[in-house]
Amino acid sequence: MGLEIIVGIKWVPNTTSVNIDPKTGTLIREGIPSVVNPHDLTAVEMALRLKDRYGGRVTAISMAPPSAIAGLEHVIGMGVDRGILASDRVFAGADTLATSYVLAKVIEKIGDYDLIIMGHETIDSSTAHIGAQVASWLKLPYIYYAKEIDYNEKEKSIMVKRILENAFEIYKIKLPAVVSIAMHTYEPRRIKISNKLRAKMENLIQVWTSKDLDIDVNCAGLRGSPTVVSAIDFVPKVPRKNEIFNEKDPRKAAKWLIQKLIEEGLLDP
């Protein structure tokens, strides 16, 4: 039996390297390659560990342009069983509401699922909305910042340990449910050549358009997006001090550092 798991992955520009054109002040997007949102790889790893323990199947879904097939192949390379890409011009320009609507439709169409796993947030928009919104669309329970998941097959429920600033909470939740995984919970596993080969040779990725999805086009893409970005402002540059203390003895160096932090009012003496 095992678990039918769906995991959401977003195809994002590698923002470690988004530069600003010094002349125009705009983002330089030329040639910035996309990657699977790193926190979603953590979610994929969680899904795969659950599959390793309890059996079942992992399906990755993404709403993105066709280039995201490379991202689905990446997670299939890690061990995901199949990928579904929701891709259509009418999905473009979506805010989180419209994105979650389409993802919920994809999940509805998949139909057979026990657990939906999302990442903590994305590196390019970082709203952390999608998990909650997908759960609302599907009227499912939602829990976020999950660190550990144990499955009880008899009860069809999971025990979720979620992390707070200085405490853990443990919940028992009936499936199906939506869970977002706290960032850095796991390192994603390595890509296996057998899995990559499967991705290329066994047709494991399907592309679904709005027609496949029974979608109200007024709820998708730009049209379905009530959010308006009124302006973008740059974070003012914080002036920084810079002092170098050359000291071999770590004790003395630490003392000096603590003294400095106290002087700056950043530490209580």
Partner: peptide, 20 residues
């Protein structure tokens, strides 16, 4: 991004900043 018109040597950090 590193503007190059300045006739001085850039810091390696700034040059590397253009890579992905």
């Amino acid at each position: 991004s590193t503007k190059v018109e300045e006739k001085k040597i850039q810091r390696i950090e700034d040059i590397l900043n253009n890579d992905v």
